[in-house]
Design a protein around this nucleic acid. Sequence first.
DNA 1: GAGCCAGTTGATCACTTGATCAATAAGCCC
DNA 2: GGGCTTATTGATCAAGTGATCAACTGGCTC
Lengths: 209, 209
Amino acid sequence: MSTLPSRVKRKSGPERAAEIARTAREIARYDGLDAITLRAIAARIGVTPALVSHYEPSTEGLVATTFGSIAGAELAEITKELSALPSSVEALRALIDTLLGPDRSAVTTVWLDAWSVGRRNIALAREVGVQMDAWQAFLVALLNRGCARGEFAVADSGALAWQLLAIIDGINAHAVVRYGDARGQRDLVRTVAEHELGLPPGTLSAAPA
Amino acid sequence: MSTLPSRVKRKSGPERAAEIARTAREIARYDGLDAITLRAIAARIGVTPALVSHYEPSTEGLVATTFGSIAGAELAEITKELSALPSSVEALRALIDTLLGPDRSAVTTVWLDAWSVGRRNIALAREVGVQMDAWQAFLVALLNRGCARGEFAVADSGALAWQLLAIIDGINAHAVVRYGDARGQRDLVRTVAEHELGLPPGTLSAAPA
DNA sequence: GAGCCAGTTGATCACTTGATCAATAAGCCC
DNA sequence: GGGCTTATTGATCAAGTGATCAACTGGCTC
């Protein structure tokens, strides 16, 4: 009797936990936060639902964590990218181009899901608040830095940050739901930012030399 | 033996159908589109789930219809209110005040749900598109009327309508998710509209004489 | 190579959902 | 008041959800 290859592929605890978290992120991006399910995750990594449940005692918590991970990763990536730019004006320009760029639909749909599902998932609602505040704080820091350098002036950087984020979120939501691309609406954000910061029109549009 | 009062309260077909539709709207406003359930509706009107299923063969369709009803009713109401105003500038001012007014959270959450759930409910996605287009068409008509009357000028009313709606939706989404009130952000929409329409600053803020 | 720890399974429970259908009974018409 | 239309029920199904737990076993340690 030939020994059948063992069907069980054993992994270390942390390794399996990371695999589950990564799979949850993939599902969220592809099929939405609601598609994060014990069985969906288990099926993807070829494992029993009980195992997923073993590593993630609460599915609600996993959903919240997954959202926070996706939103936080993007913020971290953008933070890193912008930190390489010399001026705050260029950073702001790059931020707008990125946040309203192509291939944004996955992240945007996750945010839309979070806004909707958050009402039934307290942990997720809390994470949504944390992430929104983090984005606002990031933009406030960027604006304040530009002010300190004398690149532009702004009366209330906190309020302006919320305004710009609201516009960007609205544009992206419309783009995802109704069309596919938000790039055509970049000028709206640019114009508002230039106006509020006292920058000459076109400053945020032109590509850097 | 006293005859127990009959537990069945019979209603005419259309009457029951209307009651179901109304109940679905109430549930959607209070608990979200996802809370629209055969059993939830049945329980509210004191009836068996099978009866609801009898009048609404598909729950997906009911969800789409309910969303369309809520969104359409608001558009109809606003259309009526604004039609009483003499000038397009006043209409625009009133529109902004209404769409960013208090007590908007119920409608906004329904929209957020629709954006999210629409990805799993084709009929709902279609209805979302119809409603978004209807709102845009309404705003385009308002802008074009103002142009024809010489109240203001706009290069591309279609694009401006989408921009203003995107800003309003973004502000409302933020307000619902993070805070409770969107009124503090009205000036953002006013400023953009005034700028794009060539109106003097403050035109859309002041209350009419 | 024996033994043990930890990762993994399979079975199972409780619950919610949409949906179907024969059977019942309410209320109207003649 | 008999009969007929139709609103309504109760029972039931299948699918899908999260969650639990005793039992199993892979692979490392000694």
